[in-house]
């Protein structure tokens, strides 16, 4: 059975947005493919991926392990090289976008440097960009407050809990004010209570900063709760099988997860994932 193709949904885009698409599109992939050459033969991590992410969107990639969702994110970040198709970030090739510091990347693990204080971890990108020490300190204070870590400037990462460390890494990704925030299962290693809390904080942060967020997850509730658009992916070869728009208000709370609309979308995501799996068997 073919999954429903939702790759371009004219209803979800206003006419004006469509007209400004070239200017407003933050990520644009056309027939993107990426193959890893391994000793056991080629692995098709991505195949025929078409994707459009507009400014200000919150897009989640969801799918089982090996579906290429992290690879797609890393290709956008120029941490992997596509082997076919075209990919543009902010209208330029990913490499250029990376050198322009167009995105902040939040990894699965906080990846804070243990020899630096929280403040100096957050200011690491600013130091690389050559900002003066006073400006750096001011920025660190500002962004640590934004993620509710004010007062922890002088602590070392290993003195903080996992959730606090991941919040510090989000502050680090935001502090140089990139347009795009790329998040690779940032809360995957945390327990569910902390995770819910951080999801709410992330939504507020997104509303406040107006960033475009691309978020990789394998949790259906997390994807539905956070996103304006859910990209459902399937493995072998990694490809997009469904793109689901959602229209929850930006100031939704965790209670939204009990609503019928929420459950309906979650159901559709689950159906999409199931369809993707039946392909293999």
């Amino acid at each position: 059975m073919m999954p429903p193709s939702m790759q371009s949904d004219p209803v979800s885009e206003s006419v004006a947005a469509a007209a400004n698409r070239d200017r407003e599109s933050v990520v644009r992939a056309r027939d993107l493919s990426l193959t890893f050459e391994t000793a056991d033969g080629p692995v098709f991590a991505l195949s025929g991926v078409d994707l459009e992410i507009d400014r200000g969107e919150f897009v989640s990639f969801i799918g089982p392990s090996g579906c290429g969702k992290t690879t797609l994110l890393r290709a956008i970040a120029d941490l992997e090289q596509p082997t076919g198709g075209t990919l543009a970030v902010n209208g330029v090739p990913p490499r250029e976008a990376r050198l322009n510091r167009s995105y902040g990347y939040v990894f699965q693990a906080p990846a804070l440097y243990p020899w630096r204080t929280i403040e100096r971890n957050v200011t690491l990108p600013l130091e690389i960009m050559g900002m003066s020490a006073n400006e750096r300190r001011a920025k660190a204070g500002e962004y640590l407050d934004l993620v509710n870590l004010g007062g922890f400037e002088k602590k070392y990462p290993w003195q903080l809990s996992g959730g606090m460390q991941q919040r510090a890494s989000i502050a680090r990704a935001l502090c140089f004010d990139p347009d795009l925030l790329l998040m690779d299962e940032p809360f995957g290693a945390l327990d569910e209570i902390v995770r819910d809390h951080l999801n709410e904080q992330l939504l507020r942060l997104w509303a406040k900063t107006q960033k475009t967020v691309v978020f990789v997850t394998h949790s259906i509730p997390e994807a539905v709760f956070l996103s304006t658009k859910i990209v459902v992916m399937s493995p072998r070869p990694g490809r997009i099988i469904d793109v689901i728009p959602t229209d929850f208000p930006r100031d939704r709370t965790l209670d939204a997860r009990e609503s019928p609309e929420f459950l309906e979308i979650a159901h559709r995501v689950r159906e999409g994932l199931r369809a993707g799996h039946s392909y293999d068997d």
């Binding site: 990376r98 990108p125 960009m129």
Partner: peptide
């Protein structure tokens, strides 16, 4: 940690 440095160019 290396990818992080790369992402900052």
């Amino acid at each position: 940690e290396r990818d992080l440095m790369r992402s900052y160019g």
